[in-house]
Nucleic acid binder design. Structure first.
Lengths: 159, 159
DNA sequence: CGATTATATTTCATTATCCGAAATAAATAG
DNA sequence: CTATTTATTTCGGATAATGAAATATAATCG
């Protein structure tokens, strides 16, 4: 037996993913930055002062990649690098004024579109979407779990 | 007034996006293909026989990019190129047996994880997640709409 | 202290992406 | 037949992403 509901949800999920990806790309185009650069700049800005290692870990990039992207952000005057005093192995990254302005001026289209349309919905529907999305995130998010326990739960509908 | 619900939903949405991206990447790693190559191969397989132009359009890649990726897929024996008889400008791409096997053997982890966990949920919760995700996709998906109408709907909660 | 080990970042070499513009080739319109 | 349009590829160039090696600092242990 196939689960129609699971199928339909996956289909909707793919639509969500496509929409989100399109948003990211258009946003990047608007700022003149590439998606990766934008991601890194955001991560830096969100944390005030971070080390490349943390950024790499958060974004699941290699350190080498982060270094290269930060090189460009620094060259563009959007981010700064400074060696930590406490631990001189560490570099502290920060967004410059220009970098913050760049992020502020190029608001996340995903957010903008989302906010406007979401606000127009009745409260009960907002609540339902929130609950559904959170559950979905829960389902997808657990990654430390290995496959075995899943299979123990009995017959699983094939998708 | 800020909408807590909108905020929370966006947060959950970001978790979903992160999980999905991680899934794609791990899947690609498992097959030995890069995410882009996998995307292209999937798109080709899903349609049986397609032209590079259609693939480029669907994935929002440039034709040049698709050509380069197809080059690799062909070199790996996963896809084939053949000139169309009806219109000799067209190239028809198809997944080879090996290509289809490659896709089949590397099942979408997103789907796998999702299917197992989803099936374990009570029916009402499955229905709720479906409804929420579909509405979310609706909200995000409309892209032909320009920005203006959004702003006409009155005050918009800032996110 | 001095040697070793661990941590943090960068450099280097390599492969893959992704694109715009020009080139190539075939279909179609006038 | 010539011009235009359509479909794809080639080319040149910037970016992205990685693993492995190099560099530098910190911390630990005898």
């Amino acid at each position: 037996m196939e689960s129609e509901i699971a199928n339909a949800t996956l289909k909707a999920l793919r639509r969500v993913l496509r929409a989100a990806e399109g948003g990211t790309r258009r946003l990047a185009a608007a700022t003149g930055l590439t998606p990766s650069q934008l991601l890194v700049l955001r991560e830096i800005d969100a944390r005030g002062e971070v080390t490349p290692g943390i950024v790499a870990q958060r974004l699941e990039f290699s350190h080498a990649t982060v270094t290269a992207i930060v090189d460009r952000l620094v060259a563009l005057g959007l981010a700064s690098r400074a060696r930590s005093d406490q631990d001189k192995r560490r570099m502290l990254l920060a967004a410059t004024e220009k970098g913050r302005r760049c992020l502020a001026e190029a608001p996340d289209m995903l957010q903008e579109i989302f906010a406007a349309r979401f606000a127009a919905l009745p409260a009960w529907e907002q609540a339902m979407i929130l609950a559904g999305t959170e559950r979905l995130a829960d389902i997808l998010g657990v990654r430390e779990m290995d496959a075995a326990p899943l299979l123990d739960t009995g017959a699983i509908d094939r998708i």
